[in-house]
Design a protein around this nucleic acid. Structure first.
Length: 408
RNA sequence: GGGGGAAUACCUAAGCGGCCAAAAGGGCCAGACUGUAAAUCUGGUGGCUUAUGCCUUCACAGGUUCGAAUCCUGUUUCCCCCA
């Protein structure tokens, strides 16, 4: 049992890959050494608020790190913040969360979330806790006691609170409790390591204080950088619409990968794959498109079969890289009564097919040169052009929207 | 409880009586160029059976005006400060 852990240096190499910051730096080695000496797995905490999450690659960064800890023999501890979800994480937010979730919603989200997490983490070996288990039992006196350990000045060292305070924007009292609650979770589950983004530093350090006050061993913060989204600038997030979800079909993922800005590839390789970094650098020194294909197939294989990833890649090469028509052209029914002697004005055709939401939009599309018909994509030149419509006609509204007409 | 400020299209944000369907960025859409990358350039970004035309928009409801996003009244929401 004692020897079941890999050597400390080896563990460190795995753990620190793609990690922006470990605080305190040197304690991690000590903890690992101690763990190995005594044959005791480290308790690795990762908390998330079940606020209705469609898990995307950004979330998988810490999740993958948990997985790596598991593979090194450590204990994953996942905290479902069903109580903290009622507060809303103020991190990085300029405004308080506008709407509170109900308990039912939270529980539903939690289950949904855990199912998705299972694609990355080995759930059969992970502990799962809901922080309502302990917060729900606290009395108001307990809460006061907890609050008595934290000062407002400490809270204001958080950049987000400090900024809001400076800018005279609202900071709600319950938001102030958020980091305290998160920190308390670490006390409850006796965390040795906590994973998360760098924006969580404050809460992580607070957890150390609370642990020390309770006479517990203090946790180490292992913080990942924030994964940028498809735009290559802002963090990957659902609300920004710049994400790749892990439940998406392989081909959808492929398309999104290939649209990534080149500059983010190194980060993606580092955070989302196990490929050795010298190998990555070799790839990036070559043709960048090939590197991107390698990246995409690697990641897609993690959520679909390797065959599916390759197939998605080939399909992309054929349909988008090459000249082949898309293989997923949807059929759209067109009422025959709309036609006059087999023709229909271009504007009306586009709206009738649902490719444009209004005649004005269709008109603009045509004037912009984006409306085309047929496999050869011959352009429609004027908005009042009469298009002769036959069954099976291909209609294009730009390169990404298209359909095949079914006269019915 | 008192005082101050704000609400404009997807977002930020101009406009403060006619020239406003409403400046400017951003975003987004389309086109060119490409590796459906980035960068760049161009056009577009309320609706209308096809329009130097009409209709609906500037928190909501009224009002003043020949004419209002712009002025007045009330309502709602939000923010800040003092207590």
């Amino acid at each position: 049992m004692t020897s079941s852990f890999p050597p400390v240096e080896e563990q460190l190499r795995v753990i620190t890959r793609g990690i922006e910051k470990v605080v305190p730096q040197d304690e991690l080695r000590k903890k690992l050494q101690h763990s190995r000496d005594t044959g005791t797995p480290l308790r690795v905490k990762y908390g998330i608020d079940p606020t209705g999450i469609d898990v995307h690659l950004g979330h998988t960064v810490p999740l993958r790190k948990i997985r790596q800890f598991q593979e090194l023999g450590h204990q994953a501890v996942i905290i479902i913040g069903n109580y903290t979800a009622l507060v809303g994480d103020p991190s990085g937010r300029d405004e308080a969360r506008s709407r509170r979730l109900t308990a039912d919603e939270v529980e539903h989200n939690a289950r949904d979330y855990l199912a998705q997490v299972g694609k990355v983490v080995d759930m059969s070996r992970a502990e799962v806790h809901r922080n309502g288990d302990w917060f729900g039992r606290m009395s108001f006196a307990d809460v006061l006691g907890l609050c008595g350990r934290v000062t407002v000045a400490q809270l204001l060292t958080r950049e987000d609170f400090a900024r809001r305070y400076r800018e005279e924007r609202a900071i709600f009292l319950h938001e102030c409790l958020y980091p305290v609650m998160q920190a308390w979770d670490s006390v409850e589950i006796r965390a040795d390591v906590e994973l998360g983004g760098t924006e969580q530093l404050y809460s992580f350090m607070l957890a150390r204080d609370l642990q020390a006050q309770q006479g517990l061993s203090q946790q180490i913060a292992v913080m990942s950088p924030i994964l940028v989204g498809l735009d290559g600038v802002r963090r990957m997030g659902k609300s920004l619409g710049n994400y790749i979800g892990i439940s998406e079909p392989a081909y959808e993922m492929m398309k999104k990968f290939m649209q990534l800005p080149d500059g983010v590839m190194r980060m993606y390789f580092e955070l989302l794959t196990e490929l050795p970094m010298d190998e990555v650098d070799r790839l990036l020194a070559g043709h960048l498109k090939e590197a991107k294909v390698a990246l995409a197939t690697n990641v897609i294989s993690q959520y679909h079969s390797a065959e599916a990833a390759v197939a998605a890649c080939q399909r992309w090469q054929a349909e988008i890289g090459g000249e082949a028509l898309p293989s997923d052209i949807p059929d759209v029914a067109l009422d025959a009564s709309l036609l006059t002697s087999g023709t229909l004005s271009a504007v009306r055709l586009l709206t009738a097919l649902g490719l444009c939401t209004s005649n004005s939009e269709a008109r603009r599309l045509i004037e912009g040169g984006g409306a085309r018909t047929g496999p050869e994509k011959s352009p429609i030149t004027t908005h009042d052009q009469q298009v002769s419509v036959s069954d099976g006609l291909l209609v294009w509204a730009g390169r990404k929207k298209y359909c095949r007409v079914r006269i019915g």
